[in-house]
Computed example of a mutant assay.
Amino acid sequence: MTGNNDRRPPAVRPLARLAGGAALLVILVVLAAVGGLVWWLQAELPAGADRTTRENDRLHAQSLARGLSASAHDGALTDEEISRTLRTEPWAVRRTDRAIRVVATTTPALGTEPAVCWAFTLGLPLGADTSARTALHPDSCPERRPEAG
C-alpha cells in the first residue's frame, strides 16, 4: 500500500483540476460583472434622479405658464389671477408697456429638493392668443412676504 487514498484513475486528476480552474474562472468573471454593474449604477442613478427632478420642474413650470395664459385671455392679468394661478408664495410681478413678467418660486415635489425660480413673460396686448414664455429665473428668487397681522 502506497498511502495514496485517491482511488480515481490517474487520467481523471487533470480533468478535475481543469474543471476546478474553469469554475474559479467563471466565479471571477461573475464577480467582475457584478462589480461593474454596481459601479455603473452608483454613477448613473443620481444623474437619472437629477434629470427626473429637472423634467418635473420644467413640466410644472409649463403648467403654470398655461394657467397664466388662460387667465390673460380676457385681456387683463390681475394680482388675484396670478395668485390663484400660481398657488404658491412668493411671487413678484413687473409690468411694462410691452410685457408682464411674473417671477415665482415653485415648491419642489420633495421637501429635500431646493426651490426653483421661474420667470413667466406675457407679451402685451393680452388676449385670446396670449401665451407665456417660460425660463429659469437667473437672479435670486422673490422673498417671502411677511404674514399680515
Rank of each mutant, 00 (worst) to 15 (best):
N56F: 10
D57Y: 03
T112V: 15
T112N: 11
L68R: 03
T105D: 04
A65T: 03
T52S: 06
A104Y: 04
V103E: 01
T85R: 09
H60Q: 12
L64T: 03
T106I: 15
A65P: 01
R95M: 06
V103Q: 01
G75S: 09
V103K: 00
P90H: 04
H73F: 13
C117L: 05
T85P: 07
A104Q: 05
R98S: 15
E81S: 07
T78G: 08
T105K: 05
E80W: 04
T112H: 04
T78F: 11
P90C: 10
D50C: 00
R98H: 14
S69I: 02
T52A: 12
R98L: 14
V93G: 00
L77I: 13
L59A: 15
E81D: 14
H73N: 10
I100D: 02
C117P: 01
P114H: 01
A76Q: 14
A109H: 05
E81T: 03
T88V: 15
R87A: 14
V103Y: 00
S83L: 11
R94I: 13
E80M: 09
S83E: 15
L110Q: 14
L110A: 13
E89R: 14
E81V: 05
H60C: 00
V116T: 14
I100V: 12
T106G: 07
I82F: 05
R84W: 08
L86D: 05
A76W: 03
A65L: 03
A70C: 00
T96Y: 07
L59I: 12
T107A: 04
I82A: 05
R94K: 13
R66M: 12
R51V: 09
V93P: 00
V116Y: 01
Q62W: 06
I82E: 03
R95C: 04
A115P: 02
L68N: 02
R101Q: 15
E89Y: 07
T105L: 11
D57V: 03
L86P: 08
A115H: 13
L77N: 06
R66Y: 09
R95A: 05
V102R: 02
D50K: 08
G111M: 06
D74S: 09
A76H: 08
L110W: 10
V102F: 01
G75Y: 10
T88Y: 01
L110I: 09
E89M: 06
A109K: 04
A115L: 07
A72G: 03
R58T: 15
A104G: 10
C117A: 15
S63A: 13
C117N: 05
L68M: 08
Q62T: 06
L77C: 06
